[in-house]
Design a protein around this nucleic acid. Sequence first.
RNA 1: GGCGGUGUAGCUCAGUGGCAGAGCAGAGGAAUCAUAAUCCUUUUGUCGGGGGUUCAACUCCCUCCACCGCCA
Length: 641
Amino acid sequence: MKNESFYVTTPIYYVNDKPHIGHAYTTMLADMLARSHRLLGHDTWFLTGTDEHGQKVQEAAEKRGVPPQAHVDTMVKRFEELWERLEITHDDFIRTTEPRHTKIVQEILQDLYDRGEIYQAEYDGLYDVRSETFVTEKDLPEGSSIDNLPDHVKKIKETNYFFKMSKYQDWLVNYIEENPEFIQPDFRRNETLGFLRKELSDLCISRPKSRLAWGIELPFDAEYVTYVWFDALVNYISAVGYRRDDEQFARRWPSQVQLIGKDILTTHTVYWPTMLKAMGVEMPQTIFAHGWWLSGRDKMSKSTGNAVNPLDYADRFGVDALRYFLMSEMSLGQDASFTEEAFVKRYNSDLANDLGNLTSRVLKMVHTHCDSKVPVACEIKTGSPEADLWDQVQTAVTEMSTQIENMRPDLGLAAVMSAVREANKYIGIRAPWKQAKEEDKAPLYETLYVSLEALRVCSALLYPVMPAKMLALRTQIGAGDGEPAVADVKVFGKLIEGTVLAEGEGLFPRHQKPKAPPQPKQSKKAENVVTVEEIAIDDFFKAQLKTAKVLEAEPVEGADKLLKLQLEVGDEKRQIIAGIAKHYTPEQVIGKMIIVVCNLKPAVIRGVESRGMLLAASKGKKKLTLVTVDAEGFPSGAKVG
RNA sequence: GGCGGUGUAGCUCAGUGGCAGAGCAGAGGAAUCAUAAUCCUUUUGUCGGGGGUUCAACUCCCUCCACCGCCA
């Protein structure tokens, strides 16, 4: 019965990260898929979890003065709480510090070691402390060299353990080519194949405890811990009983979909399959890499402060509206843009105007004309407006399941919204408010019954995306308070005459745009008066201004107006290029506390990256003075505004 | 530099060797059950530029431009 089982995973999230939109999106997507398959009666399993070992966790715990385990026990709650808030229905949550995981990791390592898949070798080269990876000379940032290393790169010579990944290269290329569904979307598959055109090296899987103690100890050498991939990736099988519960493992594995962000493509399409191959475990059916949410056109990042906090939107518009937006706005695989404007537009047009208002107008008439009960069921006559509507609704049914299969939920949702619009049209054609004035109420009841039926099916189709709201909608139309049954969406006439409708609030109240500020009165005086466009306070706050301390300054080669400044902005360092060299010498600016626009799009000026802009007052070309902070010893990184 | 992708309406995108599309936005109208919601009608396109194949190219081929991704 393998074809009826559905096992979906998200990556395990690094427990030290602050949960952000990317985590939330992947997990919601998995949740939507899991809910859809549960409705189809598939034996569904949805796994998520946290990755809890590593340098950063160790350091963060030290900083707080607590043992690492206590630290991660605290940190994991942020994820667990967020998932609860976002209506995530994972069946299991695995933490890589759990014995059920660590024990399996060790067993796997021991087995591979015994079978000669893992060997010891000396590494003599460079190590990047920041990214916790071995690097080569080519990876060094511009301006540094083997003799002039940046602070975060160190020369090391140490013995480590390696997994013989390279020997699986040919097999993997072959496998990917023969299984087009293995890596999706297609262009990610090509990327992986491109990556595999050059020679694959073996994978270093250990770190000496002297450098990293917080990890799973190698079973064959107590001086080392397992380095990330042989720890983290194994979660997908350790959580479903690999080597622990054969029955469960056979039931769940191989997984149908492993969702990942595009940033971890290589680890999941190269490391993971070769690891599984070495273990003798079947490949997952599909690794699916989705795109990123951009803030407008720019990458979201902590440093520019343009990251979208999913909870803000959940608080303001409801969790389900957020889920709907994320699922309908992203064409899966591509990047998508998250803006407040787009959110409000979609919320208002799809949820408030189309679906919410449809529900509202139908319910109002049922309450008024049918004594708040489901009216008498009718039959659909071929060629009637009722038949047209029902056709459209059934198209949505088919389309939704097809598009879930194709990993294009956005298109499925669009089909449902078409059906909703069709229902609004249908009501316009039948005009039940006119029918209500007739002696014969049968036509009125028919119109309302058919409208309720359309809502019943649409609500079932939207349930995996908006579970709470659709359950509320379904009780309001008399469809009961349980989960929708998938068989019922294809059948007309499931609503039972006389069922009393539950009272309820409007589902998606329209979002009113904040009132436009009063228009500035145009001066009718002399035309040479320069009028400056007035902006709203929100516009002003789009610019993130912070205090910054100038640590270093030097002229930019070949540019007599520019200085390259190294700034300290709170905990963060950044480099900017400023056109102030005609007015300040480097010595004059070092140590000054200036004001910087932090979320300016980074630019490359004279071949040098500039991440931000400083504020200065100028009059003509001759006079320029930096805007500085008055108070002595004021900290950098403070908000200005 | 190598490989790949994208470029279609104001915006977000779908699409096909045979009449250029949807949603949103804009304009006009109808209606009054409904959340200032709905419904109808409607404007706008060198389908990135150029060349080629073809009876016919937005689609296939070549080339150039712009942007993006992966790798180096």
